[in-house]
């Protein structure tokens, strides 16, 4: 190797042999480490849930529309598969609840609460629960049936109860996003709940099972804005539970939502 040639000059067309051989080694090492690295990273990742968002696939459902405490369609046409509740939680397009769209629809159709209707939307489902996004906005209402109104279905009285778990935005959690929970998704969940999507409290029941509660204030009022700070964190909530329109409900005072850190939580197990 001659000395003159061992100096690299970028604007010359060729590089000296000494540079070339070292750089080839460097690049080979990089190219070997890349798949090892990506394998390690992907393999160690937390698994995603198997919830589904049928993006681009709008379907029609018929049932009783319940406005309170949150918009729910009690599907009566047997289209909900075995193992899932037929009380379908309605949510709006994007990071909004369904109320805005429904109230726009009601401007021309009159009040819908308790009526049998056909709605169209995109399904979101997982872990026994169905949601429907009113993707077509004001065109979501297909038909109103000429039948008498049906009242809310209160099945149980309220009873005192408390759980630990995480406050989620159900739209993302039940299928739109992976992961739709935890720190990564926190600011999105805040956006969704702030936009009127009903907060859902995923309570840890025994052996890794979850129960999903609609989270409401002590008098059944919405507390979306008051709980934003505690979304996507591990919390305990004490309140009263009931079931209304097919969904478990947890009535709680926002001040009874207590953060716990992960360590003390696992130590408790």
């Amino acid at each position: 190797m001659n000395k003159e040639n061992s100096f690299f000059v970028g604007w010359k067309d060729d590089m000296p042999k000494a540079n070339r051989s070292l750089l080839i080694k460097f690049i080979v090492v990089l190219f070997i480490s890349i798949p090892l690295l990506t394998f390690l990273i992907v393999k160690s990742q937390k698994p995603f849930n198997n919830h589904i968002f049928e993006f681009g696939n709008v379907k029609e459902f018929t049932g009783i529309y319940h406005a309170d405490p949150v918009p729910i369609l009690e599907v009566t046409d047997n289209k909900i598969p075995e193992g899932f509740s037929n009380y379908v939680l309605l949510v709006g397009f994007g990071k909004f609840g369904a109320e805005g769209i429904i109230s726009n629809i009601e401007k021309s159709s009159g009040p819908l609460n308790g009526l049998k209707v056909t709605l169209q939307g995109t399904l979101i489902y997982g872990d026994g629960r169905y949601l429907m996004e009113l993707t077509k906005k004001e065109d979501s209402l297909i038909k109103i049936f000429d039948e008498p109104t049906v009242a809310n279905t209160h099945l149980y009285d309220r009873k005192k109860d408390g759980y630990s778990g995480e406050i989620l935005d159900p739209k993302c959690y039940f299928g739109v996003m992976k992961p739709g929970e935890g720190k990564i998704h926190k600011s999105c969940a805040i956006r969704c709940i702030s936009g009127g999507i009903p907060p859902v409290f995923r309570a840890n029941i025994e052996n890794g099972q979850y129960e999903y509660f609609l989270l409401l204030g002590p008098n059944g009022e919405k507390i979306n804005k008051a709980i934003l700070n505690d979304v996507a964190e591990l919390v305990t909530i004490d309140g009263e539970t009931s079931i209304i329109n097919g969904w478990p409900v947890l009535y709680a005072n926002p001040s009874d939502i207590i953060r716990i850190n992960k360590k003390s939580y696992y130590a408790q197990d």
Binding site: G94, K95, M177, K186, S187, R191, S194, N229
Partner: peptide, 21 residues
């Protein structure tokens, strides 16, 4: 786009304000 658009706040402002801890 994923976490901040189609919401009730300007997406860029949302980055700063959604989680304000």
């Amino acid at each position: 786009v994923q976490f901040h658009t189609l919401g009730d706040t300007n997406p860029i402002a949302s980055i700063f304000t959604a989680n304000s801890n």
